[in-house]
């Protein structure tokens, strides 16, 4: 997990709240911790705004009439998603966002379970389902 990106700091084997789950988190950058609205609050508020905008534009793009409007609104939606991602990444870089890796055994269990469910595909065994394993081979990849 990002082991080649040492600049992204500590993959700390911390314990938190009595759990044995480690955290993926950078050391927290400085911010004012008083009652005032601080830099972290500002970035968090802007992230909430971007998230809210993607919800709005998602509904908008679905309701557009003609193609040119659809194209432009979809483009605005995509760029707003990217903006969300940029803010999220900056918050992570600043150490204001932590993630907890799932235990590999839990992932392996689910992989096994849902691999088994592939037998339920109508096309199972016919070899006609060409999009299963291909990466980036979606039928309409805009």
């Amino acid at each position: 997990m990002n082991s080649n990106r040492s600049s992204y700091g500590s993959y700390q084997q911390q314990r938190y709240g009595g759990s044995t789950s480690p955290t993926m988190k950078n050391p927290s950058a400085h911010f004012e911790k008083g009652t005032e609205f601080n830099d972290r609050d500002r970035l968090n508020d802007m992230l909430a705004t971007e998230k809210w905008l993607t919800d709005g534009f998602n509904v908008f793009v679905r309701e557009t009439s003609h193609q040119e409007l659809y194209n432009d609104v979809l483009h605005v939606l995509t760029e707003t998603h990217h903006a969300c991602r940029d803010v999220f990444n900056l918050m992570f870089e600043k150490g204001w966002y932590s993630l907890h890796p799932e235990q590999p055994s839990h992932i392996a269990d689910h992989y096994q379970k849902f691999s088994g469910y592939e037998s339920q595909f109508p096309s199972h065994g016919t070899g006609s389902y060409q999009y299963l394993s291909g990466v980036g081979q979606h039928p309409r990849d805009y």
């Binding site: 970035l43 971007e50 803010v87 900056l90």
Partner: peptide, 12 residues
């Protein structure tokens, strides 16, 4: 006050 945060917000 954080220049990186400021820059990100200006880009937005």
């Amino acid at each position: 006050s954080d220049q990186q945060v400021k820059h990100q917000l200006e880009q937005l």
